[in-house]
């Protein structure tokens, strides 16, 4: 199995939210209680039981009204900072990366202290990890690793009607992403792939990424803070210790 990548073409998204619900269904995640907060976007944010969320953003761009949809989820970073920081904090089995697919997997069975979770969350340039204080566990998109390992595509990809959600071998997804980028560039000079080289969930947008969502794109080197970097520098020791155990 080659390493895998999502390609999310937001220009095709109609915000039908099939992906958001299919994710809940496949993962059997319960609904949360929500209120209408003046937006179609609900729940308002990702949570311990919401791995996939279509974000809605109304903007005027170049004098034209646009309604952007951003089907947010874990980027499955090629070098996941969450994993590094978790390990540096001593949680050697909390976050792993699947060798075959590249999926970054949170182990919900590993109990994590709230303050450590905050550090793990802060390490994520895309604001993905979520915590359940009662269970002392973290959760996020699993890349439907159970499906993918059995030759199926992730539930969100399967359910997408418009070709917004794509999934496959990384080389193929990169080729598709670049093809679509090229097609769109002529009409949309700001079209771009977000952090394509560093993540396995590549978003294609046609405008400044902040117009979609604050954390759509990582600025700089995947947003790793000085603090995280410092911790990473000392982390190999922790890891080696972990290996013995």
């Amino acid at each position: 199995m080659a390493d895998k990548t999502f390609f999310i073409d937001t220009t095709r998204c109609t915000a039908c939210r099939g992906c958001q619900i299919a994710c809940k269904e496949w993962n059997q995640n319960p609904a949360t209680t929500t209120k209408n907060w003046g937006s179609f976007q609900n729940p308002e944010d990702l949570s311990f039981v919401t791995y996939k969320l279509v974000r809605f953003s109304e903007v005027v761009s170049d004098g034209e009204l646009r309604w952007y949809f951003f089907p947010d989820q874990c980027r499955h970073c090629i070098e996941p900072p969450c994993k590094d920081i978790a390990e540096s904090l001593g949680y050697k089995k909390a976050i792993t990366k699947d060798e075959a697919t590249g999926a970054v997997i949170f182990n919900e069975k590993v109990k994590i202290k709230q303050q450590d979770f905050e550090e793990i969350k802060d390490s994520c340039p895309f604001n993905i990890p979520r915590y359940d204080a009662k269970k002392m566990a973290i959760a996020k998109c699993t890349m439907c690793i159970d499906r993918v390992s059995n030759g199926l595509v992730p539930a969100c990809v399967k359910t997408c009607p418009t070709g917004t959600m794509n999934f496959g071998d990384r080389s193929q997804m990169l080729a598709l992403a670049n093809k679509r980028l090229k097609e769109l560039k002529a009409e949309h000079p700001k079209a771009q792939l977000l952090n394509a080289e560093d993540v396995r969930t590549i978003f294609l947008v046609i405008d400044d990424s902040e117009k979609y969502y604050e954390f759509a794109k990582s600025h700089g080197p995947l947003g790793i803070t000085r603090l995280v970097a410092m911790k990473k520098l000392i982390s190999p020791l922790v890891r080696l210790t972990g290996l013995k155990g």
Binding site: R17, Q20, I21, K24, E25, P30, A31, T32, T33, T34, K35, N36, G38, F40, N42, P43
Partner: peptide, 12 residues
């Protein structure tokens, strides 16, 4: 259905 209600909970 809780999933659908979660996504669109109230009259607007």
């Amino acid at each position: 259905q809780p999933w659908l209600l979660e996504a669109q909970p109230q009259q607007f």
